[in-house]
């Protein structure tokens, strides 16, 4: 499998009220194309920091980060924006849709910043909305949708730029278990279609959907195991592998 993202000896230090917080203390990981990775760990373990770095929202204090063939660890703010815009899809815990936009317009946002918005991209957005099951609600606003529906919009939005990697930060954190399962099934379908997904979660039963679980503690990788994923059909707790 081709390696799509690779971090080498990544560190990240914050300055908080005069004290240095070492959020990451040398992380080396590589992610293959088509992988489905769950990043786990207690709060403060550095998993969110790692996800922010992988999402090019921040730059590491030291170490290297290759996305595709590009070293993005030393890029400028504008270049990072460009990278986020073209190669990364985000899914957030609280959906993070733009309230004044309709479903279709929300899906369209990443294309807006690529400067490619026309009738054909609009059709693509509508197709994606239909794919996530919101074909009937194209012109609804986020406040008119349930949490699960909003997260589906967010997933469609993460797909619209055909990214190298989809980064999901507790995608089911705000959802009930039934809706969570629906969302995880959707993510699995995408993964099976070849999308690379890196997901932060602290719930084991959500992590169980992934093919690989990376556990972190104190800014370091504690364990990195391949697991047999649940698959789309089996959503019962009985089949969770420890």
């Amino acid at each position: 499998m081709r390696v799509i993202a690779r971090v080498e000896n990544l560190t990240k230090h914050y300055f908080l009220e005069g004290e240095v917080v070492k959020a990451l203390r040398g992380v080396t990981l590589s992610f293959e194309e088509g992988d489905f990775v769950a990043l786990m760990g207690p709060s403060g373990s550095g998993k969110s920091t790692l996800l922010n770095l992988l999402g090019c929202l921040d730059r590491p204090t030291s170490g290297r980060y290759f996305l595709g063939n590009q070293d993005v660890s030393t890029m400028s703010d504008d270049q990072l924006s460009e990278i986020r815009c073209r190669y990364i899809g985000f899914i957030f815990q609280s959906y993070n849709l733009i309230q004044q936009y309709t479903v279709v317009e929300n899906i369209e946002v990443p294309l807006l910043y690529q400067g490619r918005v026309d009738a054909s991209t609009r059709r693509r957005c509508i197709r994606l909305a239909e794919m996530v099951g919101l074909g009937e609600r194209l012109n609804h606003r986020p406040t008119q949708l349930s949490g699960g529906q909003q997260q589906r919009v967010a997933i469609a939005r993460a797909l619209v730029n055909d990214p190298h990697v989809i980064l999901a930060d507790e995608p089911t954190g705000n959802l009930d278990s039934k809706t969570s399962d629906e969302i995880m099934e959707l993510l699995c379908t995408l993964n099976e279609a070849g999308k690379t997904i890196i997901m932060v979660t602290h719930e084991n039963d959500i992590a169980a959907w992934a093919k690989r679980v990376v556990r972190m503690r104190d800014g370091k990788v504690e364990s990195d195991v391949r697991t047999a994923p649940l698959g789309i059909s089996g959503s019962s707790l009985a089949s969770v592998t420890p």
Binding site: D78, R84, C85, Y113, N161
Partner: peptide, 16 residues
């Protein structure tokens, strides 16, 4: 502020 964060995450440059 949150909307600004969303837009930045989705690829908006500072200039946008």
């Amino acid at each position: 502020t949150r909307e600004i964060g969303i837009r930045r995450a989705l690829g908006a440059k500072r200039s946008d």
